[in-house]
């Protein structure tokens, strides 16, 4: 990693993150590193490093951080969050960072698929005649899946 360019830092980043739902506790971190020590993803992929991500937030490295693909590698197991002595909800922080990346158009391509599916059918997997026929054969009730309101509900 290159030396940090101080001119690029945004000291307000941590405050903005702390105003988002789930980001409130970020400034309490005292860098003990238990999040990183217990993270199952960091064990496999050292590039994903919760303690370093928190340092980047506190230093204000918004630009560098939000474009990192590793933000999308968290498995949301909540181990970091449950082990943090300062009650920093790091798993929630990851969701906040992802939301911020999406707003800036920095999220990896293809992630909008979930939203389109919900928009159209209200669920991730379609339930049509074929699926209902199979359900009927197994003695399970039909699913009508009324999702008429979703498009309106998810309108920007």
């Amino acid at each position: 990693m290159d030396p940090i360019d101080l001119k690029k830092l945004d000291p307000d980043f941590k405050h903005r993150l702390a105003r988002e739902l789930g980001g409130e506790q970020i400034k309490k971190c005292f860098s003990c590193g238990v999040c990183s020590a217990r993270c199952p993803i960091e064990k496999i992929e050292p590039e994903y490093n919760p303690r370093r991500i928190i340092r980047m937030i506190l230093l204000g490295m918004e630009e560098e951080l939000l474009k990192e693909e590793f933000l999308w590698h968290c498995s949301t197991c909540y181990t970091c969050q449950e082990s943090c002595p300062q009650e920093v909800d790091f798993t929630e922080v990851i969701f906040v960072l992802r939301n911020m990346a999406v707003r800036k158009g920095l999220a990896p391509a293809g992630l909008g698929a979930a939203r389109n599916l919900l928009d159209q059918q209200g669920r991730m997997y379609e339930i049509g005649d074929f699926e209902n026929e199979k359900r009927k054969e197994m003695g399970l009730p039909e699913i009508k899946g009324n999702a008429k309101d979703y498009r309106e509900l998810l309108k920007d």
Binding site: W72, F95, R98, N99, V102, A107, L111, G112, A114, R115, L118, G122, R123, M124, G145, A147, Y150
Partner: peptide, 11 residues
């Protein structure tokens, strides 16, 4: 319908 979780990362 869907619980909403798949949207949590997006919005």
């Amino acid at each position: 319908q869907c619980c909403g979780f798949p949207l949590k990362s997006l919005n």
